[in-house]
């Protein structure tokens, strides 16, 4: 029996060919994400974490190894793999609600109802008819999340989605994301370089190292929600992620020498 939302990554390797020489970007990536789990991938820039996410999304098909989502091999991008980019990537000529509906017609009462409930979920009431240029960065990202969630994805892939936002908006959106996750129980895979974000949101944190990109450590975050960012348990986990990250970085440098 296949399980909706289960993500299996088996022995994924990837190299870029450039000017005759090949650059090993990802090496022997293995992971098993249970349905409904919130997983973060953290690592120094250039460790291939975004590349890994694109592979899971089916946006990058040139790799060795296997990726299975809900029991089926991933071969191409699709609605079941919702993707949130660092930029909102909304269609600038559509209003917020039209962006959420995208190719679906708002005249269809079923779609209308779903879009309205999404607007409620991402707290954008009053901004349904606004164009992306009239929305703040945080609001735009909410619209992008709503657009992905409307399609009831098996997994939501987030590529540094809050990286370009200010600290206050970022915290706000992290809490919003947790709320959404608590309701929908969608499997989440988040790529980030923000340790706080990873510890605050995830069940598990994968720490990657560069050259070639590998998963160096896995840290389980066993704190109940809602989490306090200032509590001692949080700080301790934060420190261990920091340490792991530091270790992976030094090994990466060693490897380069």
């Amino acid at each position: 029996m296949t399980i909706k939302g289960e993500l299996i990554i088996q022995n994924v390797n990837k190299s870029f060919q450039r000017d005759g020489s090949s650059l090993h970007v990802l090496s022997h990536i293995n992971a098993h994400v249970k349905p409904g789990q919130f997983v973060s991938i953290i690592g120094p820039s250039g460790c291939g974490k975004s590349t890994l996410l694109k592979i899971i999304a089916g946006l990058d098909a040139e790799y060795d190894g296997d990726v299975f989502l809900s029991g089926a091999p991933v071969t191409r991008p699709g609605k079941e793999k919702g993707f949130i980019f660092q930029e909102h990537r909304l269609f600038p000529w559509l209003t917020a609600e039209q962006n959420i509906a995208a190719d679906l017609s708002l005249k269809n009462p079923a779609v209308r109802m779903q879009v309205d409930s999404m607007i409620e979920l991402v707290k954008l009431k009053g901004f349904e008819r606004a164009y992306p240029r009239e929305l703040s960065g945080g609001m735009s990202q909410r619209v992008a999340i709503a657009r992905a969630l409307l399609r009831q994805p098996d997994v939501l892939l987030l590529d540094e989605p809050f990286g370009a936002l200010d600290a206050f908006t970022r915290n706000h959106l992290q809490e919003a994301l947790l709320e959404i996750w608590a309701r929908n129980k969608t499997t989440m895979v988040l790529v980030t370089h923000d340790i706080d974000e990873a510890v605050f949101l995830s069940d598990r944190v994968f720490v990657m190292g560069a050259g070639p990109g590998t998963i160096k450590h896995e840290i389980a975050i066993d704190l109940p929600h809602p989490r306090s960012r200032t509590g001692p348990a949080f700080q301790q986990l934060r420190a261990s992620v920091m340490n792991a990250l530091h270790q992976s970085e030094t090994t990466a440098q060693d490897w380069e020498i």
Binding site: A57, L59, R76, P77, G78, K79, K81, G82, F83, F85, E87, R89, F91, A102, D103, R147, R151
Partner: peptide, 16 residues
């Protein structure tokens, strides 16, 4: 070009 990635994820047909 970035919006084409979005179109692929949203499974737009060529016509769409």
């Amino acid at each position: 070009l970035k919006l084409f990635d979005v179109a692929r994820i949203l499974e737009f047909s060529r016509a769409k």
